[in-house]
Each structure stands twice: as structure tokens, then as C-alpha cells.
């Protein structure tokens, strides 16, 4: 799966789940927690989505803002994680 494909599906999920509107988009570099798109319990929703959609599990040390706070960050982190798994 390419980085762009990952980004697109994450972006779609965020629009649908947190904006309740598939036509609206969140900027790729926008802080999801900082702008209130996702609240602290919404992280549960996001992580569960990533774990089930990409069949991965996150360890505690991966569950940090640096990895999940924007679509860009998620895209990079997920791409790296999936590449590592595939290699």
C-alpha cells in the first residue's frame, strides 16, 4: 500500500467519523488533538480503526502524539510500520 493510499483512507475515516461529513477534509498537517477534531477519547476510535483496517497492533511506546496527531504523521508512521512488517 502506498503512502498516498494510506493517507487517503485515514483522511476519509477522519472526515466520516469525527466531522460526520465525508465531503469535508482536514488539512494534512493540522493537529487533530490541538484543534479538537479528535478528543482524548476519540483517539480510541482512531487507533481501533488503524489496527483493524491495516491488521496491525501498536505497542505502548508507539501510542504517542508524534505518530498520530495529524494525517501526515499517521501516514508516515503507518507507512513505515507496514513496510517494516512487509520486509
Amino acid at each position: 500500500m502506498t503512502k498516498e493510499e494510506i493517507g487517503t483512507s485515514v483522511s476519509k475515516f477522519i472526515s466520516k467519523t469525527f466531522l460526520f461529513d465525508e465531503t469535508k477534509k482536514v488539512g494534512e498537517n493540522v493537529s487533530l488533538l490541538g484543534t479538537g477534531v479528535i478528543d482524548s477519547t476519540g483517539v480510541l476510535e482512531l487507533i481501533s480503526f488503524l489496527e483493524s483496517t491495516f491488521s496491525v497492533k501498536f505497542a505502548d511506546n508507539e501510542l504517542v502524539g508524534d505518530n498520530f496527531d495529524s494525517i501526515d504523521k499517521i501516514q508516515n508512521f503507518m507507512h513505515e510500520k507496514l513496510s517494516r512488517r512487509n520486509n
Binding site: 480510541l44 505502548d60 501510542l63
Partner: peptide, 21 residues
């Protein structure tokens, strides 16, 4: 919902923190 989330990594120390919420 939280327990389902915990089930993905039962050893996690972070996931159960959602119960505080």
C-alpha cells in the same frame, strides 16, 4: 469499547487509562 481496545494489546499500560475518563 475500552475492553475491546485493550484486547488488541492486553499488556498495554496506556490503553486502560481510558477508564480514568
Amino acid at each position: 469499547k475500552i475492553r475491546r481496545f485493550m484486547a488488541n494489546d492486553p499488556g498495554s499500560k496506556i490503553r486502560p487509562k481510558l477508564f480514568d475518563r
